[in-house]
């Protein structure tokens, strides 16, 4: 049941997007999100949608897989949609029970929904096509100038990659523990809220204990290999920009310029 959470899970396949330098993907994701908030007309969104569509096609990740992951966020989208629909002041189109849907509300709500959907898909493409290790490598390299200000960039990146690495392990563990307790008649689904919360105890206690045990083992294993943090550490596979990465940056600049020009200034 927990295996169904696919939002942001790495999807193994071989594509141009998968091979890109993680720094490119990080920067691209941030700029893409920024572009969504810069534009405020339909042409801009059309452009963003086209860009996104192209990337999805290139990434070879089945669209179905992305949508499946988005199901868990459907509720959030719905709430955003409803709030915008009803709470935007303007020319009323329809009113009932003292609430009214305005023309501005409809426009605002649909734009907001498109923005959110694009944002979620855009950022999930990054995590779908980049392994967590690559991602933190890229982040570390991007933020390395901050080391001058004594920001512990390497340590933070290491913590992040460990945390990300443990998510699937702990999910699998949760699944196993749930099954072990269900085999003893535990019921995680029915009953009142209080009962459900209490039913979590047999799940959470073994899970926490196991997380601590794993953390302890990992710390020991790292120490046994003389890990001492970021100073003078070299990489086995250092990140180097290649031709494709430069082309990707170029495409990104073109997209950004186009979306600023078309989506904001001229129309």
């Amino acid at each position: 049941m927990l295996r169904e959470i696919t939002l942001g899970q790495y999807y193994q396949t071989d594509s141009v997007i998968h091979r890109l330098d993680p720094r490119v993907k990080l920067v691209a994701t941030m700029l893409f999100i920024a572009s969504l908030f810069i534009v405020d007309n339909w042409i801009g969104y059309l452009l963003g949608g086209g860009f996104l569509f192209g990337i999805i096609k290139l990434s070879k990740v089945p669209f179905r897989f992305m949508v499946k992951g988005m199901k868990s966020l459907a509720m959030l989208l719905l709430i955003a949609l409803i709030f915008n629909l009803f709470l935007t002041p303007g020319e009323p189109l329809l009113s009932f029970w003292g609430l009214s849907i305005t023309k501005e509300g409809v426009i605002q709500a649909s734009m907001m929904t498109i923005r959110l959907v694009f944002l979620i898909i855009g950022s999930s493409i990054m995590t779908l096509t980049t392994t967590p290790n690559h991602l933190t490598d890229g982040l570390e390299k991007l933020l390395s100038p901050l080391k001058i200000f004594h920001v512990p960039v390497h340590e933070t990146a290491m913590m992040m990659s460990i945390a990300l690495r443990f998510i699937p392990i702990l999910l699998e563990e949760t699944d196993k523990i749930m099954k072990a307790q269900m085999a003893r008649g535990a019921d995680f689904e029915s009953g009142s809220l209080i009962r459900k919360v209490r039913a979590m105890v047999p799940l959470l206690v073994p899970l926490f204990l196991s997380a601590f045990r794993r953390a302890n083992d990992l710390a020991m294993a790292m120490e046994a290999r003389c890990y001492r943090g970021g100073e003078h550490r070299t990489k086995m596979k250092p990140l180097v920009y290649r031709k494709e990465d430069r082309i990707a940056y170029l495409i990104l600049v073109v997209y950004l310029t186009a979306s600023i020009c078309l989506g904001r200034i001229f129309l």
Binding site: K176, I177, K179, A180, A183, R184, G185, A186, P202, P206
Partner: peptide
């Protein structure tokens, strides 16, 4: 299951064994 660590959770052995019959 294979690992007892996946199912033991109570404060003491006796209450843990009671979990199944209680359910």
């Amino acid at each position: 299951f294979q690992y007892p660590e996946h199912q033991l959770f109570e404060m003491d052995v006796f209450s843990d064994v009671c979990f199944g019959p209680k359910n």
